[in-house]
């Protein structure tokens, strides 16, 4: 769905991070939260389409999926959710922060020596 636009953004960010376009990028490491609305397989497909004729033409995308971790604002309980229930497992408070699970971040890249 919107993975094509995201793939283009990744190419732009990586290109701006390399000092010369002669440098070939081998791998881009991403962190994508399980709550994010991005499908890693679709993103890889789109990335392979848009990477041609760029310094990333031989690069692969490595996606680390991060779990949904919540923290209760009332009792500080922190837990990883399996079922999608945003209520504290200890004190039943509904006042919770999402600590991780919404990431859509580029973490690093690997370039040819």
């Amino acid at each position: 769905m919107h993975e094509m636009g995201i793939a283009l953004q990744i190419i732009d960010i990586v290109k701006s991070a390399i000092p010369s376009h002669d440098i070939k990028v081998k791998k881009v490491n991403l962190k994508i939260g399980k709550l994010s609305a991005v499908v890693p397989e679709s993103l890889r497909f789109c990335f392979d389409v848009v990477k041609k004729e760029t310094p990333l033409s031989n690069a692969i995308l490595y996606v680390e999926e991060t779990p949904v971790v919540l923290k209760c604002k009332q009792c500080n309980n922190q837990w990883t959710i399996k079922d999608l229930v945003f209520i504290c497992t200890k004190c039943s408070s509904s006042s919770v922060d999402i600590i991780s699970g919404r990431e859509l971040d580029i973490h690093s890249m690997e370039v040819e020596e």
Binding site: V14, A17, I106, H107, S108, E110, V111
Partner: peptide, 13 residues
């Protein structure tokens, strides 16, 4: 060689 970037993909938006 690994190079750290650490950027949100949707930074521009």
């Amino acid at each position: 060689m690994e190079v750290k970037i650490i950027r949100k993909v949707l930074d521009v938006n």
